[in-house]
Simulated scan of single mutants.
Amino acid sequence: MAEEKDSEGTEALVAELHKKIKEAFEVFDHESNNTVDVREIGTIIRSLGCCPTEGELHDFIAEEREMLLGCLLPGVEEEEPTGYIRFEKFIPVMTRVLVERRYRPIAEDVLLRAFEVLDPTKRGFLTKDELVKYMTEEGEPFSQEEMEEMLSAAIDPESNTINYRDYITMMVIDEN
């Protein structure tokens, strides 16, 4: 009896995940032919609440090469994958990612500690110039487009600073 209920719950969860994956996939299926450009996979994965880094995304595509890239239409190249991924090949891979809760967002307290390291005098903010320097010169650098997007959401135009506590609260995903 309990196994039956558990099975029904799992089936309902998978059905809900499939619906979400399909909706996200369809946004990028511009030809309405159940395919998307492989370069859109990161955006699709992130739109589903996962937060892989570019390195993790590259590894994901490499790991799933047999499932994903093996089913691409012609045009796959080694360094910069091009081609199209079919929905029926993507859905089992993405379902597994979501069920396994891979690429979860960083916890709020970890983000706060990271910002505090960048703010040793504990002002509670970073200037725009400081933020740009850290995001483009340290670790995995942001692209110009990513930097502009972050700045538009994070910087207070009056003070030209980012109050990182407010920014963290705004960007943290509620997983409940």
Score class of each variant (00 low, 15 high):
F90Q: 01
L72C: 13
R113K: 14
R101P: 03
V117N: 04
A62K: 14
P120M: 09
R123M: 08
E54S: 15
V110G: 07
V38T: 11
I106G: 04
V99P: 04
L73Q: 08
A114K: 09
T136N: 12
E130W: 11
G75W: 06
L69H: 06
L57M: 15
R65M: 10
E79W: 07
L48I: 04
R113S: 09
N34Q: 10
L68Y: 01
C50E: 02
R113C: 03
V76W: 10
L98M: 06
M94F: 02
A114P: 05
A114D: 02
I61W: 06
E78R: 09
R102W: 02
A107P: 03
G49W: 05
Y134Q: 15
P52Y: 07
L69W: 10
P105R: 06
V132M: 10
E116L: 10
K133S: 15
P74Q: 06
C71K: 00
V110I: 14
T136D: 15
E116K: 14
V76P: 01
P81K: 10
S47R: 02
T35F: 02
L69K: 03
T121I: 09
N33P: 02
I106S: 11
P81A: 11
D59H: 07
E137I: 11
L126T: 11
P105C: 07
D109N: 13
G42R: 12
E40H: 10
E88I: 03
G70Y: 01
S47I: 06
P52E: 04
I106D: 09
V99M: 05
L48N: 09
E80L: 13
E66T: 04
L118G: 08
E138L: 15
D119A: 03
E116H: 08
L118S: 07
E80M: 12
M94V: 08
P120W: 09
P52R: 05
V36G: 00
K122M: 13
D59V: 05
V132W: 08
T136Q: 15
D129A: 15
P105E: 13
K133F: 15
V36C: 08
P81T: 13
E100T: 00
E79R: 10
M94Q: 01
T43F: 10
M135L: 15
M135P: 06
I91Y: 03
A114C: 12
L111D: 07
F60E: 05
K133R: 15
R39Y: 11
M135N: 14
V99L: 12
T53E: 10
V38W: 09
G42W: 06
E88G: 02
E100L: 04
E66M: 00
F87A: 04
R123H: 13
A107V: 00
T121M: 02
E100H: 03
L57N: 11
G49A: 04
T35Q: 08
H58W: 14
R86W: 01
R101T: 03
E78W: 10
G55L: 14
P105I: 03
N33R: 03
H58K: 14
K89L: 00
E116N: 07
T121Y: 10
T82N: 14
R101F: 05
E116Q: 14
